[in-house]
Simulated scan of single mutants.
Amino acid sequence: MGSQLNPYIAFDGNARQAMEFYHEVLGGKLELGTFADFGSSESPDADRIMHATLSTADGFTVMAWDVPERVPYNPGTNVALYLGGDDAGLRDIFGKLSVGGTVAMPLKQQIWGDEAGTLVDRFGITWMFNITQRQS
């Protein structure tokens, strides 16, 4: 197997809820492991998520963790998750992810010909969408 590049999202105690939500929206297989599961049962972070992976039939892989108390949690706006393709099902995913969040740019036709939009989900994660339009 070759190398992979996947998003790995840091959360401040709500990784389980976020990943379960993404699992509801995207489907696939969700694996969750707490710090206790990995041998840190005496840690104050024992019940937090040390590693989570969501793998979907569409080939999406999203990973996450809860930042331990000893590590500074600094959410930023310099990273976004990007979903692109020619699948009309992306519109449904956009709608589901936007529930409880904020649509920064509604899905609509852009000057490059594709349909695109951006939202921030209820966990503060930015998602960018680009739905390729068929050329006539």
Score class of each variant (00 low, 15 high):
75 P>G: 09
62 V>T: 06
69 E>F: 11
89 G>M: 02
25 V>L: 04
54 L>C: 00
47 D>M: 01
57 A>N: 15
81 L>S: 03
58 D>C: 08
40 S>V: 02
66 D>N: 07
38 F>C: 03
63 M>H: 02
46 A>D: 06
79 V>E: 01
41 S>P: 01
36 A>N: 05
62 V>E: 00
52 A>T: 03
54 L>G: 02
69 E>C: 01
51 H>F: 13
78 N>H: 15
37 D>M: 13
45 D>C: 09
85 G>K: 13
35 F>Y: 15
63 M>F: 04
23 H>Q: 14
50 M>L: 12
23 H>G: 03
72 P>G: 01
54 L>H: 06
88 A>Y: 00
51 H>D: 08
33 G>D: 07
60 F>I: 11
90 L>H: 01
36 A>Y: 08
53 T>P: 00
67 V>E: 03
80 A>V: 08
87 D>I: 00
63 M>K: 08
74 N>W: 07
38 F>Q: 12
65 W>S: 12
38 F>L: 15
89 G>N: 12
69 E>Y: 05
49 I>T: 04
84 G>C: 14
60 F>W: 09
47 D>C: 00
29 K>F: 11
70 R>N: 15
69 E>R: 06
84 G>N: 13
54 L>W: 12
43 S>W: 12
44 P>W: 03
23 H>P: 12
53 T>A: 13
34 T>L: 03
58 D>N: 06
64 A>L: 05
53 T>M: 05
84 G>K: 05
63 M>T: 05
29 K>P: 00
27 G>H: 06
56 T>K: 07
45 D>R: 02
81 L>M: 13
88 A>W: 00
61 T>V: 12
32 L>T: 04
41 S>W: 11
24 E>G: 12
80 A>Y: 06
24 E>P: 00
37 D>Q: 09
78 N>V: 14
76 G>H: 09
79 V>R: 08
50 M>I: 12
63 M>L: 09
77 T>V: 07
43 S>D: 15
62 V>Q: 00
76 G>A: 14
27 G>S: 08
89 G>A: 10
60 F>Y: 14
55 S>P: 00
23 H>S: 13
88 A>E: 15
31 E>T: 11
82 Y>A: 13
42 E>D: 15
52 A>H: 02
66 D>P: 02
45 D>W: 09
80 A>M: 08
37 D>G: 06
78 N>E: 11
43 S>I: 11
88 A>F: 01
41 S>Y: 11
72 P>Y: 01
36 A>V: 10
30 L>H: 11
78 N>R: 14
79 V>H: 15
44 P>M: 03
84 G>S: 15
73 Y>E: 04
57 A>V: 00
